[in-house]
């Protein structure tokens, strides 16, 4: 018999649990194997504390303290010519470590190198904005707040970007159910008709494989229409598509295929 698991608080449970399969890690190499990266790392180490650094898939990953993020990225931009912030976001490690991992993916056009800065913060901690250095961080940081609930300090417009302003919950957290919590399930009904309409409209049908026993009675196949409730176990009649009532429409001429001319010579 299957072991009993309490199901009264499903939202606490992470959506994805790697019960059977753990993704293999790509091999990490020493930074000294690449001269350009080694020089960059030395420059960072001279001013800031570096917790860990390695090269993975030809990209250097530098793990720093969260408090240093603005300083490190400012240095990378101004002194080490990493002049593009291609991407930044967060990763939810709340279940295993109770922390968010923030990453900044940098690109140097002149060195033709990609570098990733990573740092970790607690759930309630906030992080310094890098929007002053890279305009691309503006929307990325808003999205990070929208999806993970990571608050960014000194951001010019700290507001949700994708979800509605009155949304509750942060959808990309692993604790957030894919098909939405109760707030999400009733969002449009509550907002448009009010909570008292919930009973009338009813819950969403989230089971895409649901088969209603009345489906074959209520629906007919296109081109094989039968009246509602007809027994079709012995096959359906073949009915041609009807574009117009058979008796014709008032003041509208019925298309007569015999009167029409089919152009056989395309170059005519």
């Amino acid at each position: 018999m299957r072991a009993y698991t309490p199901k009264d608080n499903v939202q606490k449970k992470p959506y994805y649990t790697d019960r059977y399969w753990v993704a293999p890690q790509v091999a990490k190499h020493n930074v000294s194997s690449d001269d350009v990266f080694a020089a960059d790392l030395e420059a960072i180490k001279a001013k800031f504390e570096v917790l860990e650094a390695y090269i993975q898939v030809d990209q250097m990953v530098v793990i720093i303290n969260a408090a240093d993020n603005f300083g490190v990225i400012e240095m990378l931009k101004n002194e080490l010519s990493y002049n593009q912030l291609s991407e930044m976001s967060a990763i939810d490690w709340l279940a295993s470590e109770g922390k968010f991992e923030i990453f900044y993916q940098m690109l140097s056009m002149t060195k033709r190198k990609r570098l990733r800065i990573k740092c970790k913060i607690d759930e309630k901690e906030s992080i310094q904005s890098v929007e002053k250095l890279f305009r691309s961080a503006d929307w990325s940081e808003r999205e990070m707040y929208d999806m993970f609930g990571v608050v960014v300090n000194n951001h010019p417009f700290m507001k949700r970007i994708l979800m509605p302003d009155d949304w509750e919950g942060f959808p990309l957290r692993k604790t957030y159910p894919l098909q939405g919590d109760e707030f999400a399930a009733w969002y449009e009904v509550d907002k448009i008709f009010g909570k008292e309409a919930r009973e009338i409209i009813g819950p969403e049908n989230r089971d895409s494989a649901r088969i209603d026993r009345y489906d074959t009675e209520r629906f007919a196949r296109l081109g094989h229409e039968v009246p509602r409730g007809t027994d079709i176990s012995n096959g359906e009649p073949d009915t041609p598509l009807v574009y117009q009532e058979t008796e014709g429409v008032f003041m509208i001429e019925k298309f007569d295929a015999e009167k029409s001319v089919v152009i056989s010579d395309r170059d005519r």
């Binding site: 979800m163 159910p177 939405g180 449009e188 409209i201 969403e204 049908n205 895409s208």
Partner: peptide, 11 residues
Amino acid sequence: NTYATVQGVDR
């Protein structure tokens, strides 16, 4: 079949 999509406009 996600949190952000209305499951049919007839709602």
